[in-house]
Amino acid sequence: MSNDQGSTLSIENAIILFRDHLREKGKSERTIEGYCKQDLKKFVEWLSVRWVDSGTTQDLCIANVTKTDIRDLVSFWKTNTPLAASSINRQIAAIKSFFSFLNEEGYIPINPAADITVKRIQRQNQIKWLSRQQVGRLFHAIETQQHAGQLKRVRDKAILSVLVNSGVRNFELTNIKVNHVSEGSLLIQSGKGDKQRIIPIGGNTYRSIQEWLRIHEGDTEYLFYTSRGSKLTTRAVQHILKKYSDMTGVLVTPHMLRHTFAKQLAERVPRLELIADILGHSSVDVSRIYVTPSMREMQVAIESVEFMG
């Protein structure tokens, strides 16, 4: 097909051509209906509203669809809808397959969806968190270690307390300043667009911080610092946890402690909005993994009701 013909091809007619193409490829009617009557229909509806709202009068022809149109739609899906990541990825796949077909068949000279990426799915069974017993072993190792002075023991206990009891990210921990600490709360700078959030902390965590502040000797505005007096780095935090991991045999990283906090929170208050706000998630969909049963949890549940044969 020539570019002149392609420039007048309506999106509706392009979808019909795509549907016929899928049938020729042997796709099931269920897949065809999902792509054409559901996913691409949503795309056309969104595009119609977008073009009207922007004040343009252009026809709904495939030649008028730009990479920006598609990117904005996908961005909207990823950040402003309650859809699961798998549903969003199916819709993205439909759009990418649709425009790939149109480009390969010569209906459009350039594929505007070629660089669009799917939404990353973080599967719960790939996420590791610690049991309360394992966390207890880490605290015990800090309190009983013989090769560190009081300064490091108190500092390390406060670091572990903040990480596992507030769910802050490693770089957020290292950016906490002394004046960010209030009784019952912490001011957290996320570093994502200079965003800030205030999160509550429990009494035990606050007392650990206060115990550290009473012997805080660093000439720095930051809460945690190194023996040289400089701001604690994320790599230094990883090194500190690695030391206690080696001592106890409990594999631990800053992000595992974040997951541990989130999982404990979800088991007691399974509200996605609350979890997302505390953890600083951009979407409640990211928090969904903590309220979804893991394979191990499902296995335990099944074994608890299993009948004897």
Results as ranks from 00 to 15, higher is better:
73 L>W: 15
80 N>W: 05
24 E>F: 09
277 D>A: 11
79 T>K: 09
78 K>I: 14
280 G>C: 04
195 K>D: 10
248 T>G: 00
146 Q>F: 10
88 I>A: 08
274 L>W: 04
258 R>L: 05
295 M>A: 11
85 A>L: 05
246 D>C: 02
137 R>K: 09
163 L>S: 07
71 R>L: 06
3 N>M: 14
15 I>M: 06
141 A>N: 01
70 I>R: 15
9 L>A: 09
88 I>Y: 10
282 S>R: 12
199 I>K: 01
212 W>G: 06
278 I>G: 05
251 L>N: 10
90 R>Y: 14
209 I>Y: 00
24 E>P: 01
149 G>R: 00
40 L>H: 06
45 E>T: 15
272 L>S: 00
56 T>C: 05
131 S>H: 06
264 Q>G: 11
139 F>W: 02
115 D>T: 11
153 R>Y: 00
261 F>A: 01
89 N>F: 04
123 R>Y: 08
131 S>A: 07
116 I>K: 04
80 N>P: 00
239 H>Q: 15
30 R>C: 04
12 E>A: 12
239 H>R: 13
104 E>V: 09
254 P>V: 12
251 L>H: 12
76 F>E: 09
49 V>N: 07
246 D>V: 02
110 I>H: 15
129 W>Q: 00
152 K>M: 10
206 Y>N: 11
158 A>K: 14
219 D>M: 05
80 N>K: 13
31 T>R: 03
267 E>L: 09
191 G>S: 12
189 Q>I: 02
92 I>D: 02
40 L>Y: 15
158 A>H: 05
167 G>P: 03
28 S>C: 08
195 K>R: 12
236 A>D: 15
160 L>W: 09
162 V>Y: 06
83 L>P: 01
273 E>T: 11
175 N>Y: 06
74 V>E: 01
75 S>A: 10
283 S>E: 05
16 I>H: 14
160 L>H: 13
209 I>A: 03
197 R>I: 13
191 G>R: 02
150 Q>Y: 05
168 V>P: 03
89 N>P: 05
31 T>L: 09
200 P>V: 02
27 K>Y: 14
32 I>A: 04
176 I>D: 01
253 T>Q: 07
47 L>V: 05
85 A>I: 07
245 S>H: 04
199 I>P: 01
103 N>E: 11
154 V>Y: 04
261 F>M: 03
107 Y>M: 08
47 L>P: 02
80 N>D: 10
124 Q>E: 13
235 R>Q: 03
231 K>R: 08
253 T>H: 13
66 T>P: 13
286 V>T: 14
238 Q>F: 03
139 F>A: 03
7 S>H: 07
159 I>M: 06
110 I>L: 12
212 W>I: 12
239 H>N: 12
72 D>Y: 10
217 E>I: 11
300 V>L: 05
282 S>F: 08
13 N>K: 09
67 K>S: 07
236 A>V: 04
287 S>Q: 06
67 K>C: 02
14 A>V: 08
151 L>M: 11
16 I>D: 13
288 R>W: 08
90 R>G: 13
292 T>W: 03
145 Q>F: 02
149 G>D: 10
277 D>Y: 00
8 T>L: 11
286 V>A: 12
166 S>A: 14
36 C>I: 07
294 S>W: 01
97 S>T: 15
222 Y>K: 03
122 Q>V: 12
219 D>H: 11
100 S>D: 07
262 A>R: 04
134 Q>E: 08
155 R>K: 10
